[in-house]
Design a protein around this nucleic acid. Structure first.
Lengths: 232, 232
DNA sequence: CAAATAGTGTCTGTAAGACACTATCCC
DNA sequence: GGGATAGTGTCTTACAGACACTATTTG
């Protein structure tokens, strides 16, 4: 909607009514925060869930979400919900889909914008309260209320798609990193084996060599890399 | 946001307030309806714009949009705005992006969900009122208010992306069609020359032959095709 | 016949996928 | 040396892009 008007909240439409006189929905955000969890010598891809109102009978889990407050962007609200409900900070989720069935929430007219991001759990774990948060494998996210199972499925598809094009676009790895570290991260996201030589040749055009010494591990020392500027 | 509650609008939060007691944004939809316009013996890709409030001085144009009403989905609102503002029916736009800067609309807190679809103008033209609607080349959409220039750019990118994968996914062509008709439509969307032989070999796996006679045109008659079920 | 469009044969370059091999470290 | 990891050479297959050619119609 786009009528240009004088800049004041006294704006009135042709029938003399102000914007605030019309019914409006509540605006919510829900976030699928996919997390890489260390598991044996690789990673597992899970999704962060938070406990709903523990007073209400048996455990019930959902994606973290909140209503958007006035003066706030959806990104602000996502950050706030992750911080207050799961102790997670520093994420920058992106929009995934808007859920707007008028009857989707029994509390009334609530439109929810689903968001997605990825993080390594070992970088955000210190703030976790295990009684209020849990990490569930993305393949079996459990019973989730509302559209949350749908959100998880879309989130996984979205992130897998991003990770087929470019090296670690969500910056799970700090630079510089070795090709092996990059491959293990991509392996966890994609959930299919990635052959080392093919993967290397796909990624090399989007990487530049970085200085540094990787001796001290088993095997031949590896070259360090950074993301090339063309791959963000 | 996702607390499971009893299904009634009397729901109250821990401080005893109802949903309706919290401030809510107005929810709007805006639609970039890209249109293929016959032009010489090919097509031009344009975007539909509608005139804003003609009483307000010199002409000003914008993408069609409206506020979402209670009980309505965003898809409903998009259909209503296209019908009442441009006389266009039968489209099924898809979500593109949510614009939510708190200060983006001088009338107050307005969150807008941008949508996109494509149509052939010769199929919707009969209802057009030329004083209230116009079609502008997508490369130079003119001065547009709010985020509308951004919406057009995203819409074009989105549609071009869809049309690189599959034959006419938005069903601009009625079945059956010839390879030439398909190529001209894709050519207009992509805005780059498409070589006939390469295009054919890319599309054939997603098409099945259809019966019918195409004699009566210039040159050798062409095979008719339908979309294969795997390319919806 | 010419003009026009439809469709195929084929060459070249590139890249994915796979396997084998070499390279360089730690123990 | 043996084990482990890093990295390269190279073969096969596939396919995009391009050009040339054949095929079938109208006028």
């Amino acid at each position: 909607m786009t009528h240009r008007t004088n800049s004041s909240n006294d704006w009135r439409d042709p029938s003399g009514r102000r914007l605030a006189d019309y019914p409006r929905p509540s605006l919510a955000v829900d976030t699928a925060l996919l997390t890489l969890q260390a598991h044996a010598d690789s990673w597992r891809l899970t999704v962060l869930q938070v406990r709903l109102d523990p007073a209400r009978g048996r455990a019930s889990w959902a994606l973290p979400g909140t209503f958007v407050h006035p003066g706030e962007t959806m990104a602000d609200a996502v950050g706030r919900s992750l911080r207050t409900k799961a102790g997670v900070t520093g994420q920058s989720p992106s929009q995934l889909h808007v859920f707007d069935r008028p009857d989707r929430d029994p509390r009334g007219w609530v439109v929810s914008v689903a968001h997605v991001d990825v993080a390594r759990w070992d970088q955000i774990q210190p703030m976790r309260d295990p009684r209020r948060t849990r990490l569930i494998d993305v393949a079996r996210p459990g019973r989730l209320p509302y559209d949350h199972a749908d959100i998880v499925a879309r989130a996984v598809t979205q992130i897998r798609d991003e990770y087929t094009r470019t090296p670690d676009p969500r910056r799970l790895l700090p630079e510089p990193f070795t090709m092996r570290q990059l491959r293990l991260v991509h392996r966890a996201v994609a959930d299919v084996p990635l052959q080392a030589d093919t993967f290397r040749r796909q990624m090399l055009p989007h990487l530049v060599e970085a200085p540094g010494d990787t001796r001290g591990q088993r095997g031949r020392p590896a070259q360090l890399y950074q993301r090339a500027t063309d791959s963000a």
